[in-house]
Design a protein around this nucleic acid. Structure first.
Lengths: 193, 193
DNA sequence: CATTTTGTATACCGAACGGTATATTAATCT
DNA sequence: AGATTAATATACCGTTCGGTATACAAAATG
């Protein structure tokens, strides 16, 4: 790994562990065994580092979500696919996933929040579109597409959050297709399934 | 309002707006028109201030939740009551509610996270108990009480989060009983209601 | 081989950080 | 009224903050 990628990796670990604001530039470069000017050479600023990190990691996930949301299928298949993609994204780097969530819940005024917001807006809009496209086949949704979209993403996330609380390290293996199906079904048909 | 309460109020606003770590003690006392030793007189430290804030605001909400979770009723009634209490808590002080959520999603190592965690654990356990108590009447839950509890809290929260994104200021009035019922029903019976 | 570009380090900037030793004022108690 | 306690302020501590001016080395380019 070159120094640029290594700085991003170190920064991610520290941002996850302590929160973006609480991590100093000095701390990042020390962990990487480098010095400050090197960081500023590659990223220009601390927020520039975060932006680059988001760009290189979140965009691929977002592209997959968009594709799944636009692909014509039944609603259950689409939701399952979305669940699958999200779980894979979580599995790929649990720390990064949790970092994203933490940033999403930080304050509006915070520059770190402003850096992640566009990604989540796009993510959310993609899922809204999926529900909207299915509106006809799904019966009268009474304009609740937005509620469903945020509800579904929330349900998936809650499930991953529970996984995380139970098993922060990757010790108990990957999340299976059955588990995803169970969560999708709970969302679609409620708790009596 | 006395200076102690005023300091807590100012701190809450700043913690909400910028995040716990990013707010300086100096900043808090400046907003309150006081000085640092006054803050340290009342709270001992910055984290002491946060702890006092949580104690005075979260405990009442938690007590209500516990009572609702322990009161014998049908599952729908219990969930509705929990929804009602959570919405009221949100309405009472939206900034505080969002601050709690932000703290919950901050890093494990962070002292602010460690300060809120016990409250959320208790909250979560209370709801698990409610599901467990209903297990008999609810059919075979296949040990999914925990999944349901976190799923339910997540669904409620997602709804409030959507409210917040749509209308951060309290402009469009209180959340009605119908809306709460709609969310509870979606959780219980899925999206085809 | 000379020059430019890329990558990295030393050493520093002013500002803000959390926290405190000490003094002073205002209120309460005896 | 005198003593005590509660509440507030001035001025300071050492440390760390994000960021930079400058220099130097290695690699690529002519």
């Amino acid at each position: 790994m070159n120094n640029k990628a290594f700085l991003m990796e170190c920064a991610k670990e520290l941002f996850y562990a302590k929160g973006y604001d609480a991590v100093g530039v000095q701390e990042i470069v020390e962990r990487a065994g480098l010095t400050k000017p090197t960081l500023y050479y590659y990223f220009g600023s601390k927020i520039g580092l975060l932006r680059t990190l988001l760009e290189t990691r979140f965009e691929r996930y977002l592209a997959q979500v968009k594709e799944a949301a636009e692909t014509r299928s039944d609603i259950r298949g689409t939701l399952y696919r979305l669940g699958e993609i999200s779980c894979a994204f979580y599995e790929e780097d649990r720390q990064f996933y949790m970092l994203m969530m933490a940033l999403l819940y930080s304050a509006r005024e915070n520059e770190a929040y402003q850096a992640v917001r566009p990604y989540f807006v796009e993510l959310y809009e993609s899922v809204v579109q999926a529900f909207e496209r299915e509106a006809g086949r799904l019966g009268n949704m009474r304009g609740r597409q937005r509620q469903f979209a945020i509800g579904f993403l929330g349900t998936i996330h809650q499930y991953l959050f529970l996984q995380w609380e139970t098993d922060p390290e990757e010790s108990s293996g990957k999340i299976g297709g059955e588990q995803i199906a169970s969560v999708v079904d709970q969302f679609m048909y409620g708790i009596f399934t």
